[in-house]
Design a protein around this nucleic acid. Structure first.
Ligand code: SF4
Ligand code: SF4
Lengths: 162, 162
DNA sequence: CTAAATAAGGATATGAATTGTCCTTATTTA
DNA sequence: TAAATAAGGACAATTCATATCCTTATTTAG
């Protein structure tokens, strides 16, 4: 059960977009270069973010993406679900229905305890992700990333932002 | 990010084994019939449980599996990790190393904030699963499963237990 | 106005993981 | 002694993640 690498890519891209000067856009090409990723495939992840309304896009030279909301109002969960989907990680194939002791036409009432427990764990995972915003991430990164690298990266991004 | 169906199978099998009379074994064949699953493939899941020391096995007629510990001391997490592995769901491919602004030979100190946050969510998921034992599951099931079905299933299992 | 740059997305190829089957071997009990 | 079983190796089928290529419509820069 491994998250797709697009989740990591999307989180990194959102972190960069969150540091963009107000109103500017950053293109797929720039984001791909900055992270050393295949442009065409990264594009799919960005399209997922766009479909989820987390980012806005514009066309043409100086086009690209920007956050559709303040970074404080975009959570990790938003990004993860945009890429990975909202489905729960445990899917019940209802194998209890195969129990040979069941009377004919027996019908279960709702999900069983096993599924409920697995889903509670899933909910705990999502709650944790919901509790962290991109703004909080940026704040942590700013403290942790060496100042020289932080500054040069910021300038690189501004140079490429249309 | 979907858990393999073997997780569901393993949990169901453990639930059945937890209800087994003291000291008896239940075979792969019986477990497969009870759940309507392919015997050969279910066998792989049971082997995982065996390798994780959650169940004990014995050979020959009347052979099969039984829990290696009291049901109160086997958690959902034990079962899930036996089948799905202990690796975290978020893997970091360290794409920050591709940042074109990095000085040559720059070396990061430890995992970044993105990875740490994802791993915290993973830990929350595992904590939830660690908090529920097979004994607790059985108790819930006994309350929820219709008494007639509960009883007939118990008898079916006893008949097949070697 | 024109040409270049871009997002969006369809089609398709590749590789890896999951799911499933089949067979052999060693062991244990009936 | 023979049947039943766990263990596990080999392999096939399917699904999914990853990646590339191409077309289209739109927007801005020049
Ligand atoms: S017992 Fe629960 S997890 Fe298993 S098949 Fe039924 S609903 Fe699904
Ligand atoms: S920023 Fe974090 S998640 Fe991204 S590559 Fe670095 S350590 Fe991994």
């Amino acid at each position: 059960m491994i998250l797709k690498s697009q989740v990591e890519w999307a989180l990194h891209c959102c972190a960069v977009l969150a540091g963009l000067p107000e109103g500017r856009y950053l293109s797929t090409k720039a984001l791909a270069e900055f992270h050393g990723l295949p442009k065409e495939y990264l594009s799919k992840a960005l399209q997922s973010l766009s479909q989820a309304k987390l980012v806005e896009s514009t066309l043409g030279p100086s086009g690209g993406y920007r956050l559709a909301r303040p970074a404080s109002e975009v959570s990790f969960l938003d990004v993860v679900e945009a890429v990975e989907g909202k489905e729960r990680s445990f899917v019940c194939s209802n194998i209890r229905a195969n129990n040979p002791c069941r009377p004919e036409g027996f019908c279960d009432t709702g999900p069983c305890a096993i599924a409920r427990i697995m889903w509670e764990a899933d909910a705990a995972w999502r709650a944790k992700l919901r509790g962290v915003s991109l703004a909080a991430l940026i704040q942590t990164l700013e403290q942790e990333v060496p100042p020289a690298l932080w500054r040069s990266s910021g300038e690189w991004v501004k140079r490429r932002a249309g």
